[in-house]
Simulated scan of single mutants.
Amino acid sequence: MNIIASLLTAQRWPLLAALASALILGGAYFFQYVLGYDPCALCYDQRHIHKAAIGVGLIGGLAMMFVPALRAYAIWVCLALAAIFLYSAGFAFWHAGIEYDWWDGPASCTAAGPVNISTDDLLAVLDGGGPVVLCDAAAWTFLGISMAGYNALMSAGLAGISAYVGMAKR
C-alpha cells in the first residue's frame, strides 16, 4: 500500500494520468489500425479529450519536476485533470447512451437523421476513402459494454483519482 500511496502524490499524478490517457488512446488506435474497427465522429471527439489530458498531465508534471517552486500548484493541475476526465466520462456516457438507444444522437451521424453528405464525400467513400461509421451503432462490445462505455468507466475512475489526489493532504 505504501508504494501506491507514494505514487499517488499530487506532484506525480499528472504524469501517471497522462500515461493512463495515452494507454486509453493507444487502445483506441489499436482497435482502429490493428483490429479494423473504424471510429465514428463522436469517437474522434473522445480522442481529443484524452489528448487534452495528456497535454495537461505532461506539461504540469514536467513543469513540477523541473521547477520545484511550481509544486505549490499541483492541486490545480490535479483538479484540472479531474475536470477533463469528468468531461470525458460524461461525453463517453452520452455516446454510449446513443449506442444503446437511450436517447437520440446528433442527426449528422446517426441512422435516424437525414443524410447530409456531399457528392465529393460520397465519391471518396466509394473510391476506398473509408466507410461512413454511424454513431448510434456500437462497433464492438464486451460483456454488453461498448468501447464508449468502457471509456466512460475509465474516465470516471481517473476523474475520481485525480480529484482525490488533488484534495488529499500529502
Rank of each mutant, 00 (worst) to 15 (best):
F30L: 12
S21C: 05
I84A: 02
V132G: 01
H95M: 15
A72N: 08
A138L: 11
G36E: 02
Y73D: 00
D101W: 10
L58K: 08
Q32P: 02
N151K: 09
G55C: 03
L25A: 03
V125L: 07
L8Y: 06
Q11H: 11
D38W: 15
A89C: 07
A80P: 06
D101Q: 15
L23I: 08
G149M: 09
M154K: 01
T119Y: 03
R12N: 11
P39V: 11
F30C: 06
P114E: 14
L158W: 01
A156M: 14
W102K: 15
L25M: 04
M167A: 13
K169V: 04
V56I: 13
M167L: 15
P39A: 08
K169F: 00
N151Q: 14
Q11N: 12
A148G: 00
W94P: 10
A10F: 00
V132F: 01
C109D: 09
M147C: 10
A10W: 01
A96F: 09
Y29W: 09
I54L: 04
A148Y: 07
T119W: 05
A112E: 15
L8R: 07
G160H: 01
D120M: 14
P68K: 08
A137T: 15
L134H: 08
I4Y: 09
W102E: 10
L15T: 05
